[in-house]
Amino acid sequence: MTNHAQVQNGVLGTKVIAQIGILVNDIESVSQAYADFFGVEKPQWSWTDPMDVAQTEFEGAPSEARSKLAFFDMGSLQLELIEPDQHPSTWRNYLNEHGEGPHHIAFVIEGMKEKVALMEARNMPLVQKGEYTGGRYAYMDTFKDLKILIELLENDKK
């Protein structure tokens, strides 16, 4: 039985998609293609933090996986380009299995532990998680029901 508040606000407490993540093999050329297409400046890419800072875990184990990231702010939505390194991660595995293209949709949430537990109770397991400057992320395997990964983003309170 679900309580009324959960039905009203959904599992995440939001329905605003904050970001779409796209996996690429060459972040330089794809960033340039998007910049040309939208008539905007090409963003500089940056590496995700190393393991000691990011505390990356993939399928429950610590992982050295890193990615190059480039961001396009598209009004209410952010487009994230992701070029993973060779270490095992949801990024690398998905790129190997499916090729370039959409990887996740992301939502900014509050209460990461609680949301992860709620989703795991719905048979949507945690695949990968880590820290970034100013917050943390978690990728949830929602393929069975939603046909895409969902990323949870929780920013530290200022």
Rank of each mutant, 00 (worst) to 15 (best):
I150D: 00
D141C: 03
R136Y: 06
R92S: 12
G39P: 00
I82Q: 02
I82L: 06
P50W: 04
H87D: 13
I17Y: 02
P50T: 05
Q44W: 11
L79C: 08
G21N: 04
F38Y: 14
D141K: 04
A54D: 02
S29V: 13
D49W: 09
I105N: 04
N3Y: 12
L23Y: 02
L23R: 03
Q8E: 09
E131N: 13
G101I: 04
V127Q: 05
G101L: 04
E114F: 08
M74S: 07
A18R: 12
R122P: 02
T142F: 01
R136L: 07
I17M: 09
L118R: 14
A33V: 06
A35M: 08
E100M: 13
V11H: 03
D145K: 15
V30F: 13
N9F: 03
P43Y: 07
L153N: 06
H87Q: 12
P62C: 07
A65R: 03
I148A: 11
L95S: 00
E41R: 14
W45A: 13
F107Q: 02
K147L: 10
M1E: 08
V116F: 05
Q8Y: 04
K115G: 03
A117R: 14
D52W: 09
M51T: 08
D156H: 10
A18V: 05
N3R: 10
I148G: 05
S29E: 15
A117T: 15
E83W: 00
F38C: 10
L153R: 05
N25W: 09
V116E: 05
M1T: 12
E41T: 15
K158S: 12
K68H: 14
N3D: 15
S29P: 07
G60W: 06
L126S: 10
K113S: 15
D49I: 03
G10W: 03
Q44A: 15
G135V: 07
H4F: 07
L95D: 01
W91E: 04
D156S: 06
E114K: 15
N123T: 08
S89Q: 07
R66T: 08
E59D: 09
H104F: 01
I148P: 02
E131Y: 13
E110K: 15
L12G: 02
P125S: 06
A35V: 06
A33E: 07
E97D: 11
F107E: 04
T14S: 11
E154D: 09
V7L: 08
R66Y: 02
M1W: 08
V24C: 10
A35L: 07
L153G: 01
H98L: 05
P62E: 10
N25G: 15
G130M: 01
Y132Q: 14
N155D: 11
N93C: 09
L69H: 10
Y139S: 00
V127K: 05
M112G: 01
V11M: 11
S46A: 15
V30A: 11
T142E: 02
T48C: 02
Q6S: 13
